[in-house]
Design a protein around this nucleic acid. Structure first.
Lengths: 217, 217, 217, 217
DNA sequence: GATGAATGAGGATTCATTCAT
DNA sequence: TATGAATGAATCCTCATTCAT
């Protein structure tokens, strides 16, 4: 975790540094992020970085935690749909996820990288990052099969995989498709991407998966 | 591309070097592959590496191209199912893809990494790598809608995205799920993973997507 | 030398800082003493350190001088045995020395380090530190030879060396042997080490050297 | 241990580097030896150092081992006096030790530093370095008391301490006293310090200690 | 063709010291 | 007077690449 010094920084300066950190860590693998480059871009001395963070890992951990906290806040802010109807629940989840990813795409990207890259994180943090993914969906699918809403011939593992793949990649896809970049977002505001086309795209994905998984009547 | 010297190498020597290159580039990010380590493992001098390849990038590019060529060969070797029935065609594609991934997991992994990592490749090569994925599926979906076999309310972009995500991630998922590693594959032979469970998993994914996309009658 | 500011410090604060300085400089080489660590432990700002001392060297010099002063005070406080009998005098000296070392082991340790480590002290200070050792003993030995109490075949330089080596190392040896650490001393009180075993050890050393140097009758 | 590369170096180059390493590590504490300074002085690139040694510690360990080997060779070359007469044995030991210290003062100094400084050495190496010191003398003293040649009232610990202190510091003392520096030695040759004055000094120290410890008749 | 020694830029990290508040 | 943020030189170490043999 950052030092007190970091939090005491003038708002503007801290924001600029944080902005650059998000940029670097979302664009590069952990190992390829250079503290020197960060310091240069932020206009601070290399030594100053170490006034703010114990070391590179500490800084990275902070960003990861920031991502977890922000996402948690997002999830809390919109009360969860009762998981009685699985697809309604997924709709809610995906909407939150997309919203989060649009709201803070670089933080989301850092979290995404953390899942797939070789990264020096404590095991407990890795668990937190991975939670809500595959395992979460599998449990949902099993419940859906048990209560008879899903086709019993469905393999829970496979269904979970599909939901997870869709969930994980959809944000990236939409940002590419609608030419949304972090810079865009900052310039145009998040609202602009709450557009119908985005909502419709999400709805489509869920619709297809729902069709594919629902019990045939 | 490698120098003539590389291709003039005694078969055994070149094979060993190639083996190690596949290993290193499939396990590590481009930047984290160390030429020194490669040379050590291959039992050649570091200088010799530069007799075979112009530089690290050249070597990497060669592996990428190798992957493209091998996959192309795979696709050609098994005559494509007439795309009359889109899902039959997808079944065929996925099977080829899985087969390829199981046949040469390290090459597949390198190609996979090239898509998602920040990697120093010429733009044209990047296009080749990504070609055949999303765009290919989109075109298939559009044809399916046109010929009436797919639900016309389906958004071709979204359907293509879903198919692509499934296609891209499924190999990884199966390898993880059935604890398949490149080492496993070499030891146990490819056939062992042509198992029913793998085929069934692939079939499930396609089944779900088919259900989700087919025109309701 | 410290600034006026340092001496104007509330007694308690100055004492705490001094305590920590003694700790750090007695446990670490000059170069390995970190001002940051000192400031942290003392609960002061790093900048404050530079209100009290011109720089690290200045601070170090102060501790050295403190050691010299304290030892001088020790020597003065117990009236010297008339050097008529050289070994009685040495006994007294050693006792004072041990007493001093037990009384203020960290200051003694700092002085000890200053003799053997590579340390940035002005030459005149180095002379003061080393004074009273070798040269002092040599003069005593020469007097002993002159007045006929010592074996005239003894080389004064060598005898002085031996006495000095014994004198210099004995304190360390005893502290190691009886597992005496500065912490011990603070906890158990100095008196506990005025034990017979310590006195006996000192007596032994002097006895052996006396035997070795006395004129044979 | 150094790499093969180091040993393949042209004799002259390796000698120069070794010379500088001996210089640096004998004059400075481990932590204060700068690889950059070594490389500059040796006229090699910083990176080259790491072609020769795995790291700083590896290099240091090599010097330590060199010292152990050289001293061992010295001890072997002159057949040990039967320890029947303890002081004859000590005479032999001291002579060897002095000879070694004069022969390779910087190596001796490095070994000396290793005993007293805080240094990153494996435990087994530390034991080798420390062997032959205090413990060795104590055992000799105990044997001397047992066979009746030493005064039974002598405390073996104290006697061992004295012998060790004399043994350890004498070389340094003689080098200072006769203004012997490594540079001197290289210029004038080792023989010049095999002088009578040095032999006489050693003899004196042993004589005094012998007088001091022998059983009174 | 093969070798492997040499290079030097670049990376993370530490720390004494300065200075504006 | 006290603070603590800022600095930058120095530290150890890595690695792709070059080049003489």
């Amino acid at each position: 975790m950052p030092t007190e010094t970091f939090f005491n920084l003038p708002e503007e300066k801290r924001a600029r540094l944080l902005d650059i950190l998000l940029d670097e860590f979302s664009q590069n693998d952990y190992k390829n992020v250079s503290i020197g480059r960060v310091a240069d871009r932020a206009g601070i001395a290399k030594g100053s970085f170490y006034q703010y963070f114990a070391d590179k890992k500490d800084c990275y951990l902070y960003l990861i935690q920031l991502g977890i906290d922000e996402k948690t806040a997002f999830l809390k802010q919109s009360p969860p749909v009762a998981p009685a109807d699985m697809f309604a629940h997924i709709r809610w989840l995906l909407n939150i996820g997309m919203h989060y990813q649009f709201h803070n795409p670089r933080l989301a990207q850092i979290g995404y990288k953390a899942i797939f890259d070789d990264v020096p994180l404590p095991d407990e943090t890795m668990q937190v990052i991975r939670r809500g993914g595959y395992a979460y969906f599998k449990q949902m699918v099993e419940a859906g099969i048990a209560d008879g809403s899903l086709d019993p011939s469905v393999d829970a593992d496979i269904a979970a995989f599909l939901l997870n793949a869709a969930f994980t990649d959809l944000g990236k896809h939409l940002m590419e498709r609608f030419a949304i970049s972090p810079d865009n977002l900052l310039a145009a505001g998040v609202e602009s991407f709450q557009k119908d086309e985005v909502r419709r795209a999400i709805e489509q994905v869920i619709g297809i998966l729902e069709n594919g998984l629902r019990k045939k009547t």
